[in-house]
Simulated assay, not measured.
Amino acid sequence: MMRIALFLITNLAVMLLLGIVCRLFGIDQWAAARGYGGMGNLLAFAAVIGMGGSFISLAMSKTMAKMSTGAQIIDQPRNADEQWLLGVVARHAQQAGIGMPEVAIYDAPDMNAFATGASRNHALVAVSTGLLQSMDREQVSAVLGHEIGHVANGDMVTLTLIQGVVNTFVIFLARIVGRFVDSWLSGNRDNDREEAGGLGYFIIVMVLELVFGLFASMIVAAFSRWREFRADAAGSRLAGKAAMISALQRLQAGHGDSSLPKSIAAFGIAGPLSQGLKRLFMSHPPLDERIQRLRAGH
């Protein structure tokens, strides 16, 4: 809770600083003259859209995850394996100090698992049939510990906050820069035009949102990679370092394309690998880096 509070305070400070900069350079007066009613109104609009969209997605995350993967919740265990699965999740959750998550299995050939949900005490942990068939119980326990670590660390909420903040600035900056570009292209660099916002302006804003959105995605992906190391450490604490390393090695040996939908791919135990600049957009660090980090005791 303290980590989230500090995060919110930090971003509030950033917004206040941006407001001071806009005031000093006269940007808000320029925007007000063109119908924005002040920089604060535009920033509030951007925050409502940017943060609101992220939190709506978070609230729907469990439902969407179940629908997109076809995950089946284990209400009453049908066999010894499902009973064992529920028992391991319950033990990890108790050790981590969170409420018992819903536990589900989804049909997919790849080895994967994910956790999602709007809060620490109302989460969903799901594993693929491919993972259950390809790993031994110690390895599966480590993977479940990793996912419980995500829940206990509040990663879903924190990722939503970061996504909402960067969305806010993408929306905000795209419209500010779009006004300048539209004014410059139209040859109207002075204040002789009361309003702007024609087709050209909206096209510029859309392009700018795509460009700024790419940079914003790098920030979100960087946090996503960092939280994977923390979740690995949690899995190591809950199931044992040897088991967590063994699980990652098994993933490494059989790693292929993930069947998880893109909307929840960042919450999986492993993600797609990329080379070159595409590495900046990876939601997961390479498995060999994660194994090395665990071996080094970090």
Rank of each mutant, 00 (worst) to 15 (best):
I4G: 04
L6M: 06
L6H: 06
N11D: 07
V14K: 01
V14E: 06
L16C: 09
L17D: 09
L17S: 10
V21Q: 07
C22V: 13
C22K: 02
F25P: 10
D28Y: 02
W30C: 08
A32V: 07
G37Y: 02
M39E: 06
L43H: 09
F45M: 12
M51E: 06
M51L: 06
S54T: 12
F55N: 13
M60K: 12
K62H: 03
K62R: 13
T63Y: 03
K66C: 02
M67H: 15
I74E: 01
D75Q: 14
Q76A: 11
E82M: 02
V89Q: 00
A93W: 01
Q94S: 14
Q94H: 11
I98P: 13
I98F: 01
I98V: 13
E102S: 13
V103W: 00
A108G: 15
A118P: 15
H122C: 07
V125G: 03
V125S: 03
A126G: 10
A126F: 08
V127W: 01
G130W: 04
L131D: 10
Q133R: 09
S134G: 11
S134A: 15
V140K: 00
S141R: 03
A142G: 05
N153D: 14
N153R: 14
L159M: 11
L161H: 11
I162H: 03
I162M: 05
V165K: 01
V165M: 04
F169H: 10
V170L: 00
L173E: 12
I176T: 10
G178F: 01
L185K: 15
S186K: 15
N191M: 13
D192E: 15
E194M: 13
E194W: 11
G197W: 03
G197V: 07
G198E: 14
L199I: 13
G200I: 07
F202K: 15
M206Y: 12
L210F: 07
F215Q: 11
A216W: 03
S217Y: 07
V220Q: 08
A221K: 05
F223A: 06
F223Q: 09
S224N: 10
R225W: 03
E228T: 05
E228Q: 08
R230P: 10
A231Y: 01
A231D: 10
A234C: 04
G240P: 07
A242Y: 00
A242M: 00
A242L: 02
I245N: 00
A247L: 04
Q249F: 00
R250Y: 02
L251N: 12
A253R: 15
A253Y: 04
G254H: 15
G256Q: 14
S258V: 06
S258R: 08
I264G: 05
A266D: 13
F267C: 09
G268V: 09
Q275P: 08
Q275N: 13
G276Y: 04
F281A: 10
H284C: 06
L287E: 09
D288L: 03
E289V: 08
R290C: 01
R290N: 05
I291H: 00
Q292H: 15
R293V: 07
L294K: 04
L294W: 01
L294C: 03
G297E: 08
